[in-house]
Design a protein around this nucleic acid. Structure first.
Lengths: 334, 334
DNA sequence: TTTAACTTAGAAAAGCTTTTCAAAGCGATT
DNA sequence: AATCGCTTTGAAAAGCTTTTCTAAGTTAAA
């Protein structure tokens, strides 16, 4: 089996206390013994047992990350950010893909509880009361990323969805478009759904384009759904010359649909996305989009969780990171 | 703090042994006490401490997963597969993104060792001797997915790369193409690089097209690199009417390049990819490709690891899963 | 009625580390 | 020479659970 501190002690001819001290407070043990101990540790490839340490410290130095859909490219970036922050801060990371399934999410929280993760970052999904109750019931500190809660007092880091949507639509208007539609997230399973239509409506209203405010179809996070939604949108409103899509994946779905209908993008219709996935620059045409600082979102959320864990509180509760308009090839002046 | 078995025992008015028995062998404790204990457990939301259990069982019921590049869409699928298998088999999963960095990979193995993961699945990367030595030095059982080792006796599950590449090129030939090039993986940091050029060459040779065997440029896993490689390929061999790309991301890079050069795909040049990413059906044009059973690859690798952990050995050492040709829009008869 | 065989429950040990406490050793000060 | 104070080390306890062992209590059989 794996060597224990006992065997290291025996090999070095000292007590286990001394071995422990060599690892945790090296300068309290005299040089001669210290080097003998270090030799023994290396010879045996000794690695202290995390279970025993966990028992003492009551900490696992592990964080949990709950992801709604790992096949959504958006999350690859936030995972990288969270993981890099974890490395910097000395945590391990346990990533779980919930598929937006309530039961599964709850069961992962149980696992986190059992494994004694120090905290969890909860990504992009709605914080349902069940989740909240369970998390606080298990006394697990947590933060939200790309999400927030109106009901509860929970730390979060995200983008200003309303403003970002506003900027996207404003851009389309400045390009000269007057007939503008939108493909949005279903409100009942997304947190950014409502603020993004709010931004859409505000930009429209501000320019006297209220008549477009209802030209919205909703989809459920996936390409195929957005394809279908575009179909519904364009059969209902064939006059549209621009579409605001609340996700790059939706923009791709919309463009695919338009392509199949032989409608040119951006020749006849301009499409703007949201997220700036790595894929957006690879698509044909390259997507004009609102860039979220995806990696930073993940990174900051882990830092914030760390702050919560060490200080017991967090300096800014609802943190907003900056979005940015990226102009590429899927949009054009009207 | 979190409640312990002691507090449950006190609340139920029994000894801690009884509580433990209720959880692990319920029928050895009399109904009246059992129900009192269950009540107490629920009232306190008691969850046994995984550290204490780990100390006893010498198992963490946690697996580690080493991923080279989490932003590569290929891995989203294998992660899902591994994770679903883990749920079925009762393991938790610790996913680590190595960025193909040796030091980082080694350091993750240390973490796995310290956290006492029961085993690790190692994805898609070359099993360098350092990795192998460290893993066996730490006595951590492991399996390879989308990879294999010629040097060492390690269980693996992957696709038959040579055959798959052969099938791809054969398909191009049957379409009537005679001038065929390839965008491959750099041999020095990929395991599937060499077998895929072998398949390319075999298909060519079989049809008397050896003259094409050298028309290969190499790229390093990413779109941008494939774009550049396509540039090199087509300036060196402008006669090409078809390209075999060893990854869908490469195919997208190639098509992007061709598009920028106003070369029609599939009108003038046919492109076939490899992987069948979820994205491949979303791209314009939709990619003809060799589908890997990505999810199953992940799923099987976790099952295999489980087999290794429970039986101490594995029934089939080098397992191959079936690939499949998917014909979509990026290829056309010559 | 007594003994044998079970059933049920508690005490205690084991698993590995860190940390506290006490003791030993040593130099220096009075 | 004796005491003080500091450094260095080891013994032991604590952290939480599972499991073994033992004891007590119950039922059935002789």
């Amino acid at each position: 089996m794996k060597p224990t501190i006992r065997e290291v002690a025996k090999m070095a001819g000292v007590s286990i206390s001394t071995v422990s001290r060599v690892m945790n407070a090296p300068d309290t043990v005299v040089e001669s013994k210290r080097s003998r101990v270090i030799e023994a540790i290396e010879a045996l490839k000794y690695q202290p047992n995390a279970f025993a340490r966990g028992l003492i410290y009551k900490k696992s130095f592990t964080l949990g990350l709950l992801i709604p859909d790992i096949e959504n490219m958006y999350f690859a970036g936030v995972i990288r950010g969270v993981q890099d922050a974890c490395i910097k801060l000395g945590y391990s990371l346990m990533i779980c893909n919930t598929d937006r399934d309530k039961e599964r999410t709850l069961s992962y929280i149980d696992t986190f509880h059992e494994k004694q993760v120090d905290g969890v970052v909860f990504a992009s999904d709605i914080l349902y009361p069940e989740y909240y109750e369970k998390l606080v019931g298990c006394r697990i500190p947590f933060v939200l990323v790309s999400s927030h809660s109106d009901e509860y007092e929970v730390a979060s880091v995200e983008v200003d969805d309303e403003k970002a949507a506003y900027d996207a639509v404003k851009f389309l208007i400045e390009l000269g478009h007057r007939e503008i539609g939108m493909i949005g997230f279903n409100h009942d399973n997304s947190v950014s759904g409502p603020p993004r239509v709010a931004g859409f409506v505000r930009a429209l209203t501000e320019s006297g384009l209220e008549r477009n405010a209802g030209k919205i179809k909703y989809a459920n996070h996936r390409f195929e759904q957005a394809y279908q939604a575009s179909h519904d949108l364009f059969t209902a409103y064939p006059e549209l010359t621009a579409v605001f899509c609340v996700a790059d994946e939706f923009a791709m779905g919309t463009i695919s649909y338009l392509k199949d209908r032989n409608i040119l993008v951006p020749g006849q219709v301009s499409v703007i996305g949201f997220d700036n996935l790595r894929m957006s620059g690879m698509f044909i045409p390259k997507l004009t989009t609102i860039a979220q600082p995806i990696y930073q979102l993940g990174y900051r959320s882990a830092e914030k969780l760390h702050e919560l864990l060490t200080d017991g509180t967090v300096s800014v509760m609802k943190e907003k990171l900056e979005h940015k308009l990226i102009i590429r090839e899927s949009s054009r002046e009207k």
